[in-house]
Nucleic acid binder design. Structure first.
Lengths: 128, 128
DNA sequence: GGGCCATACAACCATTTGGTTGTATATAGG
DNA sequence: CCTATATACAACCAAATGGTTGTATGGCCC
């Protein structure tokens, strides 16, 4: 298994966002993170669809890493993976950071009579 | 238009996560938030696909509210909507909060000889 | 006006998705 | 051992996705 140093690969992000783009799957994640005891069939009982459908949803979540299954006799205990969720949120934060750093760049220019850039070597950043 | 008091409806979350579940679209959002001047064709020039394909991606993003277009002569200036992105991140945070509050509930029980609540019934938690 | 450029949009196609039913396998329990 | 339960998985289907090309529309400029 390739270790990705805490940054998610594009295809992983695809999977994560895809997995979260379904209300049933988000609800499953919510239940699991809330600590609901969850075999696959216990989950399936909650939704108005076939067992196989819920099973597929769980598989999608598992593929994305948002959920993991551990065998326990004939049943599988499904567990939420809050870490994966946190990393997904961080990915969104990084996107937002692009915006924030752009804004602070703009602020810098707007609030300053003599912006730091025009000179060849930037002068010792004036106040602020 | 129905005003949703700062909480996203399930179908909006579907759209948002769906929109983000594609690397090209995430890249478009990233460019826009970074402040890149962006008409639809300027964006299209960046990717190895037809203009119409990029146009569709922008439409998906616009539908999700992650992007907005404003007419400027014959071109449309595409703008990122950081607020929508922030709300999406908040939705993930809320999911994580379920986990966090569960954990704090567990901690409360585990780390306390006499918790504030258990009182009338429930015997003073016998360690372990 | 005429032509070019940016955009929009329809039609089409292959693949994926989200659901179904049906079947197979393994484990628990009488 | 036999049966019922929990899960897995294949096959099938309708609808949505992600791409294509082609055509229409509307603004810019000569």
């Amino acid at each position: 298994m390739v270790v990705w140093p805490s940054t998610l690969a594009p295809s992983e992000l695809d999977q994560l966002f895809r997995a979260l783009a379904d209300a049933t799957r988000r609800d499953i994640v919510a239940r699991l993170l809330s600590g609901e005891t969850a075999t696959v069939s216990a989950l399936a009982a909650r939704y108005d669809m076939s067992f196989a459908a819920v099973q597929k949803h769980v598989a999608v979540l598992e593929q994305a890493g948002l959920v993991s299954k551990v065998a326990n006799g004939r049943e599988r205990i499904v567990r939420g993976e809050p870490d994966r969720l946190a990393r997904t949120r961080e990915a969104l934060s990084q996107l937002e950071d692009l915006w924030r750093s752009r804004i602070s760049r703009l602020d810098e220019v707007l609030s300053e009579g003599e912006p730091p850039c025009p000179s060849p070597t930037s002068p010792p950043t004036p106040k602020r």
